[in-house]
Structures are given as C-alpha cells and as structure tokens.
C-alpha cells in the first residue's frame, strides 16, 4: 500500500469543510439569522477554501488523479509559490479561518470540519509533505517529431544529397531546383 500521504485526506476534508462552511453561511444569510455577519464571513471563507483546495496536489508515488477541470486553479494556486506549497501554512491558515465560524450555529459544523482538516494538514506537514501542482507532462517525443517537420524540403523528389545538388552550368534556367552552393562550369 505504501506510505500514507496525509495531505490527500486533508485536502478532501478541507474541501468538504469549505462546502459545509459555504452551505452554513448561505443558510445563515438567507435566513437572516442573528449575527448573520458571521454567516456572510462563512460564505466568503467557504468560497476561498473551495478555490484553494480544489486543485489536488501531486502524489509522491503512483498516479495523481486530477479533479475535473482543475488545471486553471492549479496554475492560480501554484502562482503563490511557497505560501501554497507549504502545508504548515495551510494548517495555520485553516486553523485561523475556522475561528469566526464558531460564533453562530450554522457555521459551527464547517468550523469543526476545517479544524480537523487543519490538524490533518499539520500531520502531513510534520511528515514532510508539500503541495506540488499536477501539470500536464511535456512528452519529449513530440518535440523531436516537431523538429523533423519544421523545415520541409523545398525541392521536389527525386532529391540528390545537397552536395550533389547542383545545376548544370550549361542550363541554369532549365533546372527545377535552386542551387544550394554557387556553381561554375567545369574547367
């Protein structure tokens, strides 16, 4: 089975927490609950977490499975460099983000879930894991193929090798191809 990569679970948990926080927030705002300002915060934090957690990181071993259409977000998240790569930062961020959720009931569940996600991220960070983007692999074969067709031959076949490709000096106009090197008539 191999070594457990806790970050994978933390990612699922955080994404779920984001969705739950968002749902709780929407309920709080739509129902105009007391202190619904916290619910509004829940909506904002939920959306932010979903965007941050949607792109799944690369696995150390084995194939990494992307979420549908995560490429765009992967690029965005990758742009923050070490801030999004380091899981200590994520653990801290989620721990901080979850606190205001505890003040009203609709966001409490999202808050606790996020706290759990933060703990799992902490475990992942302690074990030395980090977030690496899943980017489409550039196949080297293609590059080679590109080179070979980059300069299509100018002359029609049959083609003699370039060093023999010379026009007869007596009939320069009648030749079908361009002379690669200057020719003079035989002396």
């Amino acid at each position: 089975m191999g070594k457990i990569e806790w970050a994978m679970w933390a990612n699922e948990q955080a994404l779920a927490a984001g969705l739950i926080l968002l749902t709780g927030g929407i309920v709080g705002v739509a129902g105009q609950f007391r202190d619904w300002e916290f619910a509004a915060y829940g909506v904002a934090a939920g959306v932010f977490i979903c965007f941050l957690e949607y792109p799944r990181g690369m696995r150390n071993k084995g194939t990494s499975v992307e979420r549908t259409g995560q490429y765009c977000l992967t690029v965005c998240v990758k742009a923050f460099g070490p801030v999004t790569r380091n899981y200590y930062v994520r653990a801290g961020l989620h721990a901080a983000l979850c606190v205001p959720g505890a003040f009203i009931l609709p966001t409490v569940l999202g808050c606790v879930c996020l706290a759990i996600a933060s703990i799992i991220y902490l475990v992942a960070a302690i074990r030395g894991e980090q977030w690496l983007p899943i980017l489409p692999k550039k196949t080297e074969k293609r590059v080679e193929m590109g080179k070979s067709i980059a300069y299509p031959p100018q002359n029609p076949p049959p083609r003699p090798p370039p060093e023999l490709r010379r026009k007869r000096a007596e009939d320069l106009e009648g030749a079908a191809y361009v002379n690669p090197i200057a020719v003079t008539a035989n002396e």
């Binding site: 089975m1 191999g2 457990i4 990569e5 994978m8 699922e12 948990q13 696995r59 606790v112 879930c113």
Partner: peptide, 25 residues
C-alpha cells in the same frame, strides 16, 4: 453534531483516491 461529524469524516476518507491508495486511512 457528533454523528454528522463522524459521517463527514467517513465520507471524506472513502473518496476513491484515499480508498484506493491509502486503504488503512
């Protein structure tokens, strides 16, 4: 609250990625 939390944890850890790769979790 407690059973919803345990349900959420059960669901997040049963996602295909986790189940296939980290069966113990």
């Amino acid at each position: 609250v407690i059973i919803t939390l345990s349900l959420i944890l059960i669901i997040t850890s049963s996602m295909e990625v986790i189940r296939r790769s980290y069966f113990e979790v």
